[in-house]
Design a protein around this nucleic acid. Structure first.
Lengths: 241, 241
DNA sequence: AAGTGGTCTAGACCACCGC
DNA sequence: CGGTGGTCTAGACCACTTG
């Protein structure tokens, strides 16, 4: 998949951590040892550890060592950023459950003012409006409304929209979605939510809404996702400055 | 405040960007030029640019150059944690509203197994258990349960706990909370939530639960916050790899 | 072909932790 | 004090974009 040294080390360390290889001490080998072990410079080790640290997998203590973040091992979240794909399909990958997508609607409309602003469009640009319902093992858990400029993806079809658009972009068009802004919030469920996701009247939805960008900085998609509250779990690791 | 080269460059570039110095082309000077200009190695420039890129301030295009993220200039509210404080008091700062804290309980208890593991404690370590209710303009909006090891803060008092603990740490003890690992989720409100935060039975709470770390990597506090759904808003910027 | 960012090295020196 | 992570250097070579 990748032949970069630091990526390879990231993956191997992640595997080792998930494997429980360091569970006794919760501590990783020191950087100089890892450098010898993987036969790379200490800088490359630092780079790999830095990525894992920003993901919240590990944290470092100057003078003491590098440790596994205990919360990472709890691993009880549904929305997981796996380090290589920002799409929902991959982010909500639940082992042992099969994902499905049902296309609810697929239209081309004139972008309204807000959409134009967020996607950097001109007055007369058109966008696809796509509504989809996502399933885990035939259980609906997420309802999604997306807007994509037609000029960025003129040959998008309802067939493509019935599966993972991001994966199609990446596999077939060699374009990658590399950045996203998301705002996470929550609301009581609407009647539609209750019908779509089999919710009781007192059960809420999580809302994830934001913009996705291609790697050249072009805004690609606006999306609002309404998520069954039991599947609404988002992990975040924040570092000041 | 800091005398690190890469931090200084981050701040100077940020100022220049906010100043509109690069607005004509939306492009920053190339790395080799910046390296000469700031009289540091190219690696140090790369480090500074990398931080700004992860914050979403800029993005880089191999072969082309480094560009300002247009969204950064358009809407600064996305960058909520670019400031310098992870505390709730500062994070939920709503202009024009006054924050208050009501201390519900303040105890010292023996840490249970999970707490011990998460805070890296020994068998017989004790922790403060602190329950607080937070207000905006006399309207309760967040209920918080926290655990802090007594050995990290032996002189913590109920008076201090009645105000911002993070600000006290920073101002009086010169210790800074620099990292947090939070899981965000949502649930129907409980009877207690409804009473605490004046919620209707169908109105949910947002839940933010996780660990806060000091800048030396020591886990400082475990916290679970139940938030009135209208105040539950979390912004994220994600960059692949 | 020239210019730009990406990866990686080998090593120096500093700052902090715990014994 | 020894061991750990943090900062920074000077440079080599690679991969991609653009004219």
């Amino acid at each position: 998949m990748t032949d970069l040294a630091y990526q390879k080390i990231i993956n191997e360390l992640k595997t080792a951590i998930n494997n429980g290889d360091f569970n006794e001490t919760m501590k990783l080998p020191d950087e100089r040892s890892l450098s010898e072990q993987y036969k790379v410079s200490r800088s490359t080790i630092k780079r790999a550890l830095s990525v894992l640290s920003h993901r919240g997998t590990i944290f470092k203590k100057r003078g003491s060592g590098t440790f596994i973040n205990p919360l990472y091992l709890k691993n009880n979240t549904f929305f997981k950023y796996n380090g290589s794909n920002l799409g929902i399909t991959d982010s909500f990958d639940v082992p042992g459950k099969k994902q499905g997508i049902k296309l609810i609607s697929f239209d081309v409309i004139k972008a309204d003012e807000t959409t134009r602003r967020d996607l950097f469009l001109n007055q007369d640009d058109f966008v696809y409006k796509i509504q989809r319902l996502r399933y885990l093992d035939d259980e609906p858990f997420l309802s999604e409304t997306s807007y994509i400029p037609i000029k960025l993806f003129p040959d998008l079809t309802s067939e493509i929209a019935s599966e993972s658009i991001f994966n199609y972009m990446e596999d077939e068009k060699n374009q990658k979605v590399t950045n996203s802004y998301l705002t996470i919030s929550t609301e009581p469920s609407t009647k539609d939510d209750q019908k779509d996701m089999h919710l009781k009247t007192n059960e809420p939805v999580g809302i994830m809404s934001g913009i996705f960008f291609l790697n050249n900085g072009t805004p690609f998609e606006i999306s609002t996702m309404r998520v069954h509250y039991k599947y609404m779990k988002y992990d975040t690791f924040i570092t000041v400055s």
